[in-house]
């Protein structure tokens, strides 16, 4: 499996990179970790005439908390996320996710930015970021703009990034006290995309009710899904079994999976229900232990 020929560019600044993209237009693709793009090129399902490798641009990687956000550079590798102490201790949902993406070798190259920019509903970070209410920072020839994650995914393998824009950072609002999250993924084996997966993030208020609820669904629709009705149903309520079950049912209703080798539509919808309930319970439990 041999990719078609292409021209290779290695800009050393964002400006240079976006200028190149603007010039080359549809013929060009950004290369980050390459773990989605190169497999597609090897199968010749993608044959871009130009690759713009952004790995040589300084400052695009790293994880830090600042200004009330967790700021993740687009080129941050999944393995860095997995090993990050701040992620492990304060963003368990992210930590969970980073451990179940692909396999450990792929995670050494795959980037968080690439995972989102690829717009693949089977990727795991989109659901996570939907649940966390993240914001995407994109830079184009005309400057920087921020996109709320809820309006980022516009279709299958499509995002609101313009062809000449580069995703440079992901910002996740730092969760208040008594917050917790969990990511539960059913995969057929390690390295597989999810049959279905659910990201849940909750904040429990002083009265014991859910102050904030975020629920994102992986690989059960043409785009990643934010289960807004399920979130709304739980918000303001105590996360008891009945409320969790109700939210889980609403999440299942929000899913629009298609049948494939991983299972039928009914199966996947039911998985969403089962996994949502389990993820919410785990998130609530974690919120309780995090004051």
């Amino acid at each position: 499996m041999i990719p078609a020929a292409f021209e290779y560019h290695t800009p050393s600044t964002i400006g240079e990179a976006t200028a190149l993209l603007a010039k080359l237009g549809d013929d060009a693709k950004v290369l980050s970790g390459g773990q989605s793009l190169i497999p597609l090129m090897k199968l010749r399902l993608a044959s871009p005439a130009h690759l713009v490798d952004i790995n040589g641009i300084p400052g695009l990687s790293g994880i830090r908390e600042a200004d009330g956000f967790l700021r993740i550079g687009a080129l941050t590798r999944e393995s860095e996320l997995e090993e990050s102490e701040v992620v492990r201790s304060r963003y368990p949902l992210l930590h969970d996710t980073s451990k179940v993406i692909a396999d450990p070798l792929v995670r050494n190259l795959a980037t968080v930015g690439g995972n989102l920019a690829h717009g693949d509903p089977a990727n795991d970070h989109p659901a996570t970021m939907l649940a966390l209410g993240a914001e995407i920072v994109a830079v184009g020839p005309k400057g920087e703009r921020r996109v709320p994650i809820a309006s980022f995914f516009t279709g299958p393998f499509a995002t609101s990034l313009r062809p000449d824009e580069i995703l440079v950072e992901i910002r996740i609002p730092s969760p208040p006290a008594r917050s917790g999250g969990a990511y539960l993924k059913l995969e057929r084996k390690v390295g597989d995309f999810a049959t279905a997966a659910v990201a849940a993030q909750v904040t429990i208020g002083a009265n014991g009710a859910c102050e904030h609820v975020g629920i994102g669904l992986t690989n059960v629709g043409l785009t990643p899904i934010k289960a807004t009705k399920a979130e709304a149903a739980l918000k303001g309520k105590a996360p008891d079994e009945a409320a969790i079950k109700r939210a889980a049912e609403l999440a299942a209703e929000a899913s629009e999976p298609s049948a494939d080798l991983r299972g039928s539509v009914e199966y996947k919808k039911d998985l969403v229900r089962v996994l949502t309930a389990r993820a919410l319970r785990k998130a609530v439990e974690r919120a309780g232990s995090r004051r």
Binding site: L186, R188, T195, R262, G263, S264, Y267, D270, L271, V274, A277
Partner: peptide, 17 residues
């Protein structure tokens, strides 16, 4: 014996979580 097959049997027999 895939999870999907087992799930189908379980639901047919009225077992659920």
């Amino acid at each position: 014996i895939t999870p999907a097959k087992v799930w189908k049997l379980l639901r047919e027999k009225g077992v659920t979580e």
